[in-house]
Write a protein that binds this DNA or RNA. Structure first.
Length: 592
DNA sequence: GCCGTTTTCGGCCCGACTGTTTTCAGTCG
């Protein structure tokens, strides 16, 4: 899968062109980069089967960019790109992570201060050199230092969403090799943590040596950390480490339990085992010398006298006590919201604003993935760069949605079962202004089925002001959902400062639904917030925030996040069928 | 460099905010 590296080159090209003040081309490259990045199909496959014409089918990729992708696939290099790399020998990956630093500043810092990477940037800032540059000052220097700190905190971690497709591919490759009986990713990937440090693969096989050999021939790596008869560890060209461990089949459950973690969960579990007269290790649960459980995780938890604990919960945040039914968690673990249980998706952008696909394309794909309704929620007018809708454009879009809803019967929803009655809802992602008012008139909002409100600017407000601002928007009776409530965007931007408890209380008061945004960069609410919302009885909705058909698959990451927050099906309103979902929204509007 | 119910050339890229300034460039959504 070469999509990430191709997308990376295109994104870098966009930055270089920005640096040289080339008009229009940067946007073109940016658009192509996002399209390639979110493509589920492998560009290399696409090129092999359909050639240049296939590449040009990617939205935003025309002749010029297609030829550069071809050049990369054929030779591993792109001449234009190499020329720029020579002209600006800087670490764009690092520097572009710094919030507030754009291509022009990066260029200036390189040319005046020879800043090439994060380390150089930090030195220049700490040495007080940056404030001396024109258009920079003391404040800019401080902001840069702050942004560097945030980048540093997230370094060495990878977004689950970025690594997951690769891991799935690796597992399939193992399975197709016929060399392994089982292949599973353990560790933080299995726990579906929002970021992961490395990949822990566990396999069972009769031929460990062969499996390790096979793995090394398949994976592209630049460092072999170690290789033994049952374990191999490499640093891949993608930048993360993969460990592959071969486990004897009869202790697979114990190994899986051990390597899934978290460390905190395991420490407590082992202590518990000791108290009960057992010993727990990666080789099994022992009573004296006798191995009493090891083949499956289920039996280990069972012998310890507890409910089975789903991997997403294993963080030692009360799950062990609950599994033991200890007070105050005597009711035991919650039945987590199952994967695949969503019926709708209430945040979808289209090519009416900054999305890649048409309303109809998004709807068709959503239906294909088993959903029965979606809401189209394009940006509104304050987000001018996206071509955000004003009241007039919203009306036009509503008409178009009516048209598609009424014409779809004969064509793509011809099946007779209930699931086939696919429905596109009219919505918007309205902007919450600095003062908490919205950028669309109430009269227009009243005509929409679903109104999501979100903060997109003025992130640096005081906690109090930001909380007040958002709560004011929530009090608008037309606002159904608060989109991405904390506003973070990993790895670049931290949440803005808000009082999440106050927001949850306000949601309870007003009946506003809180979003669990499933974009791998956002995953917002966070798991700990979800848990609070669950405890407060506040309803949530899991949305893909899809900007292209490929993004609809993000919903699973949102479900994982909800599961990590102990949410059950009843806590998430888009598990409801359409009529019940709409009724719920109506209740809020009437209630307010 | 891409795109097309303004269609093969000529648009596309607006507006608020920040930090630097005193009229503006850069960044972000």
């Amino acid at each position: 899968m070469k999509n990430p590296e191709v997308a990376n080159i295109l994104a870098h090209m966009a930055l270089y062109l920005h640096m040289d003040d080339v008009p229009f081309k940067p946007q073109a490259y940016e658009r192509a980069a996002t399209a390639v990045e979110s493509l589920s199909q492998d560009v290399e496959e696409l090129y092999k089967t359909e050639g240049l014409k296939g590449l040009e089918k990617i939205p935003g990729v025309g002749k010029g960019i297609a030829e550069r992708i071809e050049e990369h696939l054929k030779t591993g290099k792109v001449q234009d790109y190499e020329a720029y790399r020579k002209k600006y020998p800087i670490d764009l990956d690092e520097l572009s992570l710094v919030e507030g630093l754009g291509p022009k500043s990066i260029k200036e810092l390189y040319e005046k201060l020879k800043v090439r990477d994060l380390k150089g940037l930090e030195q220049a800032a700490k040495g007080g050199q940056i404030r001396k540059l024109p258009h920079f000052g003391e404040k800019s220097e401080q902001n840069i230092l702050q942004a560097i700190e945030f980048v540093k905190r997230s370094q060495g971690r990878w977004l689950l969403g970025a690594i997951y497709p690769y891991v799935e591919e690796l597992i399939l490759t193992f399975q197709h090799s016929k060399l392994v009986k089982q292949a599973v990713a353990a560790g933080s990937i299995r726990r579906m943590k929002e970021t992961v440090g490395d990949v822990d693969m566990l396999v069972t096989t009769k031929t460990p040596e062969k499996v390790i050999e096979f793995f090394l021939s398949y994976v592209k790596y630049d460092k072999l950390w170690g290789r033994g008869p049952t374990k191999v560890s490499v640093h891949t060209l993608r930048g993360f480490n993969i460990d592959v461990r071969v486990l004897p089949e009869e202790v697979f459950g114990a190994g899986l339990q051990y390597f899934t973690g978290s460390k905190e969960h395991n420490v407590k579990l082992r202590t518990l085992a000791l108290q009960k007269g057992y010993k727990l290790s990666e080789y099994g649960l022992f009573k004296g010398e006798k191995r009493v459980a090891c083949e499956t995780e289920e039996e280990i938890y069972k012998v310890l006298g507890m409910q089975y604990i789903e991997p997403e919960l294993r963080e030692d945040t009360g799950e062990i006590e609950a599994a033991l039914r200890l007070a105050p968690l005597a009711q035991g673990l919650p039945a987590l919201i199952p994967y695949g249980s969503l019926q709708g998706d209430l945040q979808i952008q289209t090519n009416w604003t900054d999305g890649n696909n048409s309303i109809e394309e998004m709807a068709r794909e959503a239906k294909k993935q088993g959903l029965s309704y979606i809401a189209i929620t394009d940006h509104t007018k304050d987000l001018a760069m996206t071509g955000g809708s004003d009241e007039k454009k919203l009306l036009r879009q509503m008409k178009e949605i009516d048209r598609i809803n009424s014409t779809q019967s004969s064509d793509w929803v011809a099946r007779s079962d209930d699931r086939a009655k696919f429905r596109i809802l009219k919505g918007a992602e309205v902007n919450i202004r600095k003062d908490g008012t919205l950028d669309i008139e109430d009269e227009a909002l009243a005509k929409l089925d679903v109104v999501g409100a979100a903060v997109h600017s003025n992130f640096k407000m005081s906690k109090n002001d930001m909380t007040e601002r958002i709560m004011r928007a929530m009090r608008n009776p037309h606002v159904d959902i608060l989109f991405h409530p904390t506003g973070r965007s990993m790895p670049k931007r931290d949440s803005y400062d808000i009082d999440i408890d106050a927001i949850i209380q306000e949601a309870k008061q007003t009946g506003t639904v809180l979003e669990v945004n499933a974009q791998p960069r956002r995953l917002d609410l966070k798991d700990i917030h979800i848990k609070k919302a669950v405890e407060a009885g506040v309803k949530m909705v899991i949305n893909s925030d899809a900007h292209s058909t490929e993004h609809l698959r993000f919903l699973n990451f949102g479900i994982a996040q909800a599961r990590r927050g102990w949410a059950q099906k009843a806590d998430v309103v888009n598990t409801l069928p359409l009529d019940k979902f709409l009724q719920m929204l109506k209740d809020k509007r009437n209630h307010a």
